[in-house]
Amino acid sequence: MTAATAHAVRLGVRRGWTEFVQSLRSPQDQAFYVVTALGTLVFLWVNRDDRVEGTSLLFPTVALPSILGALLAFGVVIGPAYALAMEREDGTLLRHKALPHGMQGYVTGQLVYHSLGLVPSLVTILLPGLLLFDGLMSGGAAGWATLAWVVVLGLAATLPWGMVLGAVVPSTQKVGTWGMLPILVLTGISGIFAPVQALWGWLQVVAQVFPTYWIGLGMRSAFLPDGAAVAELGGSWRTGTTVAVLAAWTVAGLLVAPRVLRRMSRRQSGSQVEAAREAALQWVR
């Protein structure tokens, strides 16, 4: 890394931090965090006495780790996708293109901002969850350590793909169809709300190609007692495979994202921003 790049990365970290603090202070984002957390906790509370079939575990104990995993995978793909699509249209990106090493700073800022943004969305569910439901974390210190690496690796495996998605969608309005829909389907089949074994065989295979399933599995392996692994595919937490799959997605993401981002940046121009503005004004009318 050259000195100028290092300088831009430092500015990007500051940018990400500033955006994070601004987001925490924004009533809009606060409402988002609170509503997501409340919805999840109410859902778990209503089902608090259900036993999970074939085990002695309560529903919230199994569902909460899975939901955290899904939130992670969903949040860091859709979040950056929307942000990037929007900032391509509103001129944020063009401003950075006009700066020396600006794109490096911008991308760093995005990575930092969306990584940090994960903290409140997980903590607002996890902390009240620990108070509301007994026996949530049975792994102790080792469990927390597992949680930490699953979060970090899960982040690395998915966040670059959120950036790729944001870079290739034609417009902000299309993030819903191109991004939200497939990701929701993926989340649906990834064993978050129902065990993956309940699906058709080919769908199980599809689910296991994508990182969402593995992040959920890793989360359960962090929180649940070892005995609960019998309920999983193959009767094991498959920790080695989890690491391998998530690492593969990370490497692929790190190979693809910079290329796609460079291509997107090359195409940025004032007229493109102007066209998006016209389109958006039409949208409002």
């Binding site: 100028a4 509103d90 006009a98 700066l99 090493h101 600006g102 921003v273």
Partner: peptide
């Protein structure tokens, strides 16, 4: 980037950096 540093561009933005 050396060239970029010497060129200024005034852009017609419209809603970027709203919270800044």
């Amino acid at each position: 980037d050396d060239w970029r540093a010497r060129v200024g561009v005034v852009l017609q933005s419209w809603r970027d950096h709203a919270r800044w």
